Simulated assay, not measured.
Amino acid sequence: MGTGSRIAVALAALTFAGTANAQDRYSEADFAKVAKFDAHVHYNYDSPAFLRIARDDGFELLTINVDYPDFPPLDTQARIAEKYHRLDPEHLRYSTTFSMKGFGTPGWTKRIEATLDRAFANGAIAVKVWKNIGMVETDPQGKRVFLDDPRFDPVMAHIKKAGVPLIAHQGEPRNCWLPLDQMTTDNDRSYFREHPEYYMYLHPDEPSYEMIMAARDKFVAFHPDLPFDGAHLASLEWNVDRIAEFLDRFPNAVVDMAARMSELQNQSGENYDRVRDFIIKYQDRLMYGTDLTFSPPDANGRAQNPPMTEEFTKEADDMWRSDWRYLATPRSQHIDAIDADVKGLALPRAVIDKIYHDNAYRFFLHQK
């Protein structure tokens, strides 16, 4: 074969490989066509607007009730979640939670079990525990309560018996323990600037990041048969190798990406292959989520993470499309949270399908 023929064959092979690679991944034009599941949102506003934009963009939603002072009361959150679940059960599902009020006093466990049973009867498919456990709550003796406290065990046994998973937001991003100028993302800077009560750098006498993570890990190890969703990349967002260690150690655990995409983008900017290889290796253990918060507009409201604006539907659409661009396509985009241009990971279609839909269906709905 002559030199010209060999060059022609090589060029044809490269063209075929490029075409095959393109066929193996989605494009931006596929965004609204592909079935997707946002496994971490907060639907706190009695309005159908969130559902409308979700349907338009091809999303189902899991709204998560949280005992968070900046959110409406728990009964209001539950009422809204149940209302829109009844109106559109195919596009909105919800996770319940429980109040820590009265923890450690007689009757608390039975009250919580009854509360959970009512929520399950009304459609709740998961239970959320929040960062107040480990960072805020104390027992009647004034002792800080961590998730590995054995007084939680009867409630966890009740959740397991009901056949629903636990979603756990434990701790905070590691940025929470760093000075503002050492944080890796602007969204963390704005959140902790507005929420000094949760900014542990300002409270050196409070439990350390390592202490809270250790208590969480002890809990997961003690409940190996309880399906466990480590919300926000299990608060290990700063290092994909640490997330991998967590997933390797706990086969009952998955993690969601809610409010931590910029941390993955920051790491992929430093080592693209490391982040892409991590996602492909753990494609069965990762779930897409945003932490989008749909609450009544409040001019005096403090910064959310991600932020909440009066133009919520545009915010949701913009965030979903930006994340799709990063995960599904090779296109670069500027990410304001890290003030950097970030190249898309162009993950294979099969990986995108799992992260965006199949893993959540298997974990929360027991469907393949």
Rank of each mutant, 00 (worst) to 15 (best):
A49V: 10
L62C: 13
D75M: 07
F152H: 06
P89Q: 13
V34R: 11
A78N: 09
K33I: 06
K131N: 14
D117P: 01
I125L: 03
D153Y: 14
T96F: 00
A49M: 11
D30T: 04
Y68C: 09
D38W: 06
A35E: 12
V41C: 13
A49S: 13
V129D: 01
A35I: 10
E82P: 02
Y68D: 14
M156S: 08
V41S: 12
V136S: 15
I53A: 09
D88K: 12
V41T: 15
D38M: 07
S47G: 03
D46W: 02
Q77N: 06
P73L: 04
A124I: 05
I133T: 05
D56W: 06
N44P: 06
K101L: 15
S47E: 05
L61C: 00
D70V: 09
K128Q: 05
G104W: 01
E90V: 14
K33L: 11
I112A: 08
D149N: 06
H40R: 06
D149T: 02
R118S: 09
D67V: 00
D75A: 10
N122K: 14
G134E: 01
Q141E: 14
I53T: 15
F37M: 08
R144E: 07
T63W: 00
G107I: 13
R151P: 02
R52M: 11
I112K: 04
A54D: 02
F98T: 00
R52H: 13
F152E: 04
P72N: 06
P72K: 05
